[in-house]
């Protein structure tokens, strides 16, 4: 069950992991603020402090109330994304240490990422607002397109390493990173991460054409939790990609845990940067792209990987 390549640390380190995730969220938000400021033609430095100002503003903002809202489900949905992200990072080894050395860590990630279906939709649902409900269904329509390709993208590294344990998969890439010989699976995985974070091409659920979609009625701390949950999912997804595709802690000179952080930050920066460089995927059109293009592509990738794995064993 446990793998010799990783060591389980004491449960109290959960707090450190949460703090680290918080720092990654802050880094992503600051980077996005700077990129926003540059895109708007303003001084980049004003963008750097914008996330902090936004946190202060949202903490003080009075909560907006809607008629006949399903408050319980609304709050569960809004806070859920952050919880999901934390559950994902529990199985990601930071160099040699891990919080939870689960033998089926890959399936764990998958189970956590489908929670987005519940949480984003519930956020859209709970407010009892037409636009936010439209946003919720836009997300589910995206979900029907991205989820199966994402699942089969997770299969490729697991097949190559003959294990569902994240630490074992990282250790199996000592010679060659999986991203090199399973690029399709990596790209589809990255697409899935953008999707669960409702980010970039998958942001029509929060689109300005539906007045902000899922987030239209969110205010104050609820909005803060939802927005930081999206950044946290980007960060957790980037962190999970490191042991799955980017060789885990492998790298010269620096210790393994530093490499994990460096790679996570680099991928996270790419995710944040992509926001302004990819067109929005219309939910109704993306469904067919997911099933007719992405799913066969990633299945072929799996077949190729399975053939190579069979040949090597």
């Amino acid at each position: 069950m446990s793998d010799p390549s990783v060591r389980v640390v004491a449960p109290l380190w959960v707090l450190a992991a949460a703090g680290l995730l918080g720092l990654l969220v802050l880094a992503a938000a600051v980077l996005d603020g700077a990129l926003s400021a540059r895109a708007a033609g303003a001084d980049v430095r004003t963008g750097l402090t914008r996330p902090i100002g936004e946190v202060a503003r949202l903490m003080r903002q009075r909560r907006r109330v809607t008629v006949a809202a399903d408050t319980l489900l609304w709050r569960v949905g809004g806070a859920g994304l952050l919880v999901m992200a934390m559950m994902i990072v529990t199985v990601v080894p930071l160099g040699d240490w891990t919080l939870f050395d689960l033998d089926v860590g890959v399936v764990w990630f998958n189970a956590m990422d489908v929670l987005a279906w519940a949480f984003v939709w519930l956020t859209g649902w709970g407010a009892n607002s037409a636009y936010s409900l439209v946003g919720g269904y836009r997300f589910l329509a995206h979900g029907l397109g991205y989820e199966l390709p994402l699942m089969f993208a997770l299969v490729a590294p697991a097949v190559a390493a003959s294990s569902l344990n994240v630490g074992t998969i990282a250790a199996a890439q000592q010679g060659l990173w999986f991203v090199v010989w399973m690029p399709v699976a990596f790209l589809v995985f990255c697409m899935g991460v953008l999707a669960i974070a409702v980010w970039g091409p998958f942001s029509p659920a929060l689109g300005p054409d539906v007045a902000g979609g899922v987030s239209v009625e969110l205010s104050g701390v609820d909005r803060l939790l939802f927005l930081s949950g999206r950044y946290a999912l980007l960060a957790a997804g980037a962190a999970f990609a490191v042991p799955m595709f980017l060789g885990g802690g492998a790298g010269p000179l620096l210790p393994a845990w530093v490499w994990v952080l460096v790679k996570t930050l680099a991928l996270l920066a790419v995710f944040v940067w992509l926001r302004r460089h990819l067109p929005a995927a219309r939910p109704d059109l993306f469904m067919e792209v997911g099933w007719v293009v992405l799913l066969p592509a990633v299945l072929l990738q799996d077949l190729l990987v399975a053939g190579i794995a069979l040949g090597r064993s």
Binding site: V104, V107, N110, A111
Partner: peptide, 29 residues
């Protein structure tokens, strides 16, 4: 472990799909 995690995965997804059909077939809210 595998059976447990897969149970969670399948059931959450199933309930989300049920929400899709709920509004699709009921029309009203």
């Amino acid at each position: 472990n595998y059976v447990g995690v897969v149970t969670i995965l399948m059931m959450v997804m199933e309930m989300a799909i049920m929400a899709v059909y709920m509004v699709m077939f009921m029309g009203m809210n």
